[in-house]
C-alpha cells in the first residue's frame, strides 16, 4: 500500500497521467494513450467507446497489469497496479478459453491457479448456474456456441471474486440475439455481485443500455475526449426518447471529436 494514495470510499480505480507509446514496424512512434486521467467509481458500470485504434485495449491491458505505462500510474484501492492479479478479471474478445478443458474446468481454473480449489469447489456449480450453463459442465469449448463460450469466460473471471471485471469487446464477435442475451446477463451479474465493470465496446447502443457512465476516446493520440453520465433507470428501453436523445448526443460528439466526415459506427 502506498501512503500517498489514500483509499477513497467512492473511487476504486484511479488512472493518473498515463502515457503509453508503441514503436510500430516502420519505427514510427504510436501514441496509443496520451495523458489519460480517469477515476472509476466503486460498483459502477463503465463503458469505453471509440474508433478502432484509439487505445481502448491498451488502456484495459494497463488496468489488468498485462502492460505497463511509460509514465503515470494506476492504482486499485490505493495500491499501485504492477502486474496481473485475480482482483482484476479480464475477458478477451474471443479465443481465451482453454480448449482442452471442459466448461466446468475452465471455470475452475482461477481456483486451481490460486491453489484454493479444494476449499471452494462448490463455487463452480454456483457460477455455472449464474451464467446459465447448467447442463453444459462437461462440454468442451468446441462443442458450445460463441455466446456460451463468452459466458464461460465471464464466469471464469468472476469465480475469483474480482474487484473489477474488465471486458474487451466480449460481444464483438456475436450475433445480435446472443449479444442481447449476454447484455442481460451482464446487467444481472452487475446487480447481484456489485462488481465494478469496465466494458470496451464499439456499439453505442450497448454502451447506453448497460452503463452508468460512458468514456469516449479519440485516436492518434489516444485520448479521453468526454465522459458522459447515463441517468436512466433499469431496465432501459432502447426506443425511449431519452435513450435516443443520449444516443444522438454521443454520435454528435463523436462526429465532432473524431473530426471525421462520417461516424465510423454502423449501428
Amino acid at each position: 500500500m502506498s501512503t500517498n494514495h489514500p483509499v477513497s470510499e467512492g473511487i476504486i480505480l484511479k488512472i493518473e497521467n498515463v502515457n503509453r507509446t508503441y514503436i510500430d514496424e516502420d519505427d514510427n512512434q504510436v501514441e496509443a494513450l496520451q495523458d489519460i486521467n480517469l477515476s472509476v467509481r466503486r460498483g459502477e458500470f463503465l463503458s469505453i467507446i471509440g474508433s478502432s485504434g484509439c487505445g481502448k485495449t491498451t488502456l484495459l491491458r494497463l488496468i489488468a497489469g498485462l502492460d505497463k505505462p511509460e509514465t503515470g500510474k494506476l492504482t486499485l484501492d490505493g495500491e499501485e497496479i504492477v502486474g496481473p492479479d485475480p482482483q482484476r478479471g479480464y475477458v478477451f474478445q474471443q479465443g481465451g478459453l482453454f480448449n482442452w478443458l471442459t466448461v466446468e474446468k475452465n471455470i475452475a481454473t482461477g481456483l486451481k491457479a490460486r491453489r484454493v480449489y479444494k476449499k471452494n469447489k462448490d463455487l463452480i456449480s454456483h457460477y455455472i448456474n449464474l451464467v446459465g450453463l447448467t447442463g453444459f459442465e462437461k462440454a468442451y469449448p468446441h462443442q458450445i456456441s460463441g455466446g456460451m463460450a463468452q459466458r464461460v469466460a465471464i464466469a471464469r473471471a468472476l469465480i475469483n471474486n474480482p474487484k473489477v471485471l474488465l471486458l474487451d469487446e466480449p460481444m464483438g464477435a456475436l450475433d445480435s440475439f446472443t449479444r442481447a442475451d449476454i447484455q442481460e446477463k451482464l446487467l444481472e451479474l452487475h446487480k447481484k455481485n456489485k462488481t465494478t465493470m469496465i466494458l470496451v465496446t464499439h456499439d453505442v447502443d450497448e454502451a447506453i443500455y448497460l452503463s452508468d457512465r460512458i468514456v469516449i476516446m479519440t485516436p492518434r493520440p489516444g485520448k479521453i475526449s468526454e465522459i458522459m453520465e447515463v441517468n436512466l433507470p433499469h431496465p432501459r428501453d432502447r426506443g425511449s426518447t431519452q435513450f435516443l436523445a443520449i444516443r444522438k448526443e454521443i454520435l454528435e460528439k463523436f462526429h465532432l471529436a473524431s473530426a471525421l466526415p462520417q461516424p465510423e459506427y454502423t449501428i
Binding site: L66, P86, T109, A113, R114, N160
Partner: peptide, 13 residues
C-alpha cells in the same frame, strides 16, 4: 496463444 497465457495470469497463475 498469448491470450491464453495472459488470461491465466489474470486468473492468478
Amino acid at each position: 496463444p498469448k491470450a491464453q497465457l495472459e488470461v491465466a495470469k489474470t486468473l492468478g497463475a
